[in-house]
Design a protein around this nucleic acid. Structure first.
Length: 756
DNA sequence: GTAGGGTTAG
């Protein structure tokens, strides 16, 4: 009886179609006799066990039942789904003697939650009848995976749409960042429910269109806590704490969400005192608010305070641990981060992402990738963020093979290449030196935002493919995508790499008028680089002197680079002096300057430079190179003797050296071009880390495939010449990523055009 | 027992 009442109650607030279903059910229930009440109790027992994760007890109860109704079966199925036991759920569904519509719907929603869209659609098509819940579930499935066309098709075909269907379509657009489509849909209809007004507003907030969000907020017929909180959060997270405070005061209802939004807003805007004051004033605190406060302390590097709060909180949850792990890692204390990770009672995917990103950011990339493998062993499933994190770690150390495997798993997991993860994938291929695959990834993006375009454009520019970069820019303009300052840096450096001086100059002068991008420091630096590279040193210098900013180290660096190439020692000297003033510890600049002296035969000055470095205690960053072969990263330093294959490598280098001499290659040893790596003896030039890595690559990478080497510093000139020559002799493509850009060596030439 | 909006951690 109780069950019946509940059914009637739910149906009264649900749709017509639902009501029909329940009427049918009531009919069925009438045929039951006195034991109906008992069955209901059994069913409730099953649900309760399932809710608290006692799957076996639920199962025993289910099997012991003298008589089962479809509700019993459904309770088992949904219980399994709740506990992510998808296989067991499906088995139950298959074993059911008589399925009702709810069983179908529950199973369908199970597939959707499991992101098995193909299976969901198959089941959906097989359904003997569908109600509005079935249609809405399918819609939400497509929406969650970003398949907007399919979602729209389902929506259009839904026979008796209710408010949830409409809201589902609206949310599909909003959550996938298609705010204009959402707006269009929203304006096509007037009787939206509060939920949808809130969703539309949240959509604008997400796009940082606070004025539009506020307009929705002002226009909506009635507001609830969610409306107020969304608006307050919008202001708080976009740095407008004043407006947030104003609304907070005005708000008729303040719940935990409101208070937490304020605390976290203060934290994000670096207003620690205000954050703490609000935190202390909160009528009740949840774990979320504690965590926000802890985050505040970690951001201000007050790890002691963070730890104090963490120790004091009684409602500590996994997020609290995760916040602390990130805090320690970002403050450089990876050991404490790791021990917290080890100590914590329960880890989730975010804990893994936090510790992995921590290792990666502290420079332990290999340990980071190692943890991915451990994570898989631990049974933790990859999600969007672990995927993103894995990809950016691969990008850092240019672990292309590993990155490709992650890509494969990403596809297999059925993730749509939305902006966040898609851009990480794109960046991974760019930074791993595989520009073709980067372009494939770019084309495969389901949604391109400005970051995607900029990444692709910069990718081409850094690889020395200036013309391709400019093609991307043309495409952007064709699609009416408004470039920003980053885009223009890409465009100018592309022009520079392609030697398109006039076109670059034109862009530089028209960017404010044409694209509304204010010229900044970086743009000037690009222009100086562009002119300098083309040998127009006076113009470059004049531009620098006329620019409305104080030149910084990067600006002088561009001039220094140009002076080196074109042998203008005097200008180079001045540039170097200025850089030393600004960045006394920049060892790369000392090296660049001593190269400049060496190039013009001023050996005394070379020696003096070395002395200065010694006096000032400037430490050279040790140079090393690495290469990934068969999923393993091999690292080399100058004159490396640690690698197990060293004898083969050195023998092969010797052989290459002989052949190079025949080709007319002259070792640059006399020039003392120890660009980046200090060596005791000049013959060590032969064994610079990049050469070792290249030799190892030729020996181990199958012919026909490019050899990809990464170096932490700038490649030295001798190595650059040698690798050009090696690419010709060995008939291999060698792609070298150094600290500033990519070099594609092929048939004795380099994509950088010998200027970098 | 099935479908919808707002707060923290990456």
């Amino acid at each position: 009886m109780r069950n019946r009442l509940r059914l009637v109650h739910t149906s009264s607030i649900r749709s017509c179609a639902c009501k029909n279903l329940n009427v049918k059910k009531e009919g069925k229930m009438k045929t039951f006799s006195i034991t109906d009440g008992e069955v209901v109790k059994w069913n409730m027992g099953i649900s309760e066990h399932m809710r608290s994760g006692r799957l076996e007890s639920a199962r025993r109860l289910f099997e012991a039942m003298p008589r089962r109704t479809s509700v019993s079966w459904n309770a088992m199925i949904s219980g399994y789904l709740m506990n992510e036991r998808f296989g067991d759920a499906r088995q139950m569904f298959d074993a059911m003697p008589e399925r009702d519509l709810v069983s179908w719907n529950i199973t369908l929603s199970g597939y959707v939650k499991n992101r098995k869209l193909g299976d969901a659609r198959k089941l959906f098509d097989e359904m003997p009848e569908k109600d509005v819940v079935s249609w809405n579930t399918m819609l939400s499935g497509y929406s969650q995976s970003g398949f907007l066309d399919e979602a729209r098709e389902i929506f259009d075909r839904t026979p008796r749409k209710n408010s949830i269907s409409w809201n589902g379509m609206l949310a599909a657009y909003v959550q996938n960042g298609r705010i204009e489509l959402a707006r269009k849909l929203f304006e096509s209809k007037f009787d939206w429910e509060k939920v949808s007004w809130n969703a539309m507003m949240a959509g604008y907030v997400r796009k940082q269109r606070l004025v539009d969000a506020r307009m929705v907020f002002n226009r909506m017929p009635e507001r609830d806590e969610v409306s107020w909180n969304t608006m307050i959060t919008g202001y708080a997270q976009n740095g407008n704490m004043l407006e947030a405070q104003k609304l907070f005061q005005e708000s008729p209802i303040r719940d935990v969400f409101t208070w937490t939004a304020m605390v976290s807003g203060y934290v994000q805007n670096g207003m620690l005192v205000e954050a703490r004051k609000t935190f202390d004033e909160m009528p009740q605190k949840t774990a979320v608010s504690w965590n926000a406060m802890i985050k505040g302390y970690t951001l201000c590097k007050k790890m002691d305070m963070a730890k104090e709060l963490f120790d004091a909180m009684s409602c500590r949850n996994t997020s609290s641990w995760n916040t602390m792990i990130t805090g320690y890692a970002q403050n450089g204390d990876i050991d404490r981060a790791r021990s917290m990770f080890n100590e914590m009672p329960q880890r989730d995917s975010i804990s893994w992402a936090a510790i992995i990103a921590g290792y990666a950011q502290c420079g332990y990339s290999e340990e980071a990738l190692h943890l991915f493998i451990e994570m898989k062993r631990d049974g933790e499933r990859m999600n969007r963020s672990t995927f993103t994190c894995a990809l950016s770690t691969c990008a850092d150390i240019a672990a292309l093979e590993f990155g490709k495997q992650v890509h494969g798993r990403l596809v297999k997991a059925g993730y749509e290449m939305g902006c966040y993860v898609g851009n990480a994938l794109l960046a991974m291929y760019c930074k791993c030196g595989s520009i073709e695959e980067a372009y494939d990834a770019f084309e495969g993006l389901s949604e391109k935002d400005l970051v995607s375009w900029n990444t692709m454009l910069m990718g081409y520019a850094k690889h020395g493919f200036g013309r391709e970069a400019l093609k991307v820019f043309d495409l952007m303009r064709m699609k009416n995508i408004k470039p920003d300052d980053v885009t223009m840096v890409g465009v100018l450096s592309a022009c520079s790499h392609a030697g398109l001086v006039d076109r670059g100059t034109e862009y530089f002068h028209s960017m404010e008028r044409e694209y509304g991008v204010i010229v900044n420091h970086q743009h000037y630096t690009c222009m100086i680089d562009l002119l300098g590279r083309a040998g127009r040193l006076e113009e470059a210098e004049a531009l620098m002197r006329s620019m409305p900013f104080e030149p910084d180290a990067a600006t002088w660096g561009a001039l220094l680079g140009a002076s080196r190439i074109h042998g203008n020692t005097k200008l180079g000297e001045e540039a170097a002096e200025r850089i030393f003033e600004m960045e006394p510890d920049n060892s790369g600049m000392y090296v660049l300057l001593s190269n400049l002296y060496a190039a013009s035969g001023r050996w005394g000055d070379v020696k003096r430079m070395r002395g200065t470095m010694w006096d000032k205690g400037v430490k050279k960053v040790p140079g090393y190179s690495w290469i990934e072969v068969k999923n393993k990263v091999h690292t080399f330093s100058v004159g490396d003797s640690a690698h197990p294959d060293k004898e083969r490598i050195y023998a092969f280098l010797e052989e290459l050296d002989q052949r190079m001499k025949k080709e007319g290659y002259v070792s640059a040893t006399k020039m003392v071009l120890h660009d980046v790596e200090e060596e005791e003896k000049e013959h060590m030039l032969k064994y610079h880390s990049e050469k070792l890595a290249v030799a190892f690559g030729i020996l181990n990478v199958p012919p026909g495939r490019p050899i990809r080497v990464i170096k932490n510093l700038r490649v030295c000139e001798d190595c650059h010449n040698a690798i050009k020559c090696i690419s010709k002799i060995a008939g291999r493509t060698i792609i070298l990523r150094d600290s500033t850009r990519f070099h594609h060596f092929n048939r004795g030439l380099c994509s950088c055009g010998d200027y970098w």
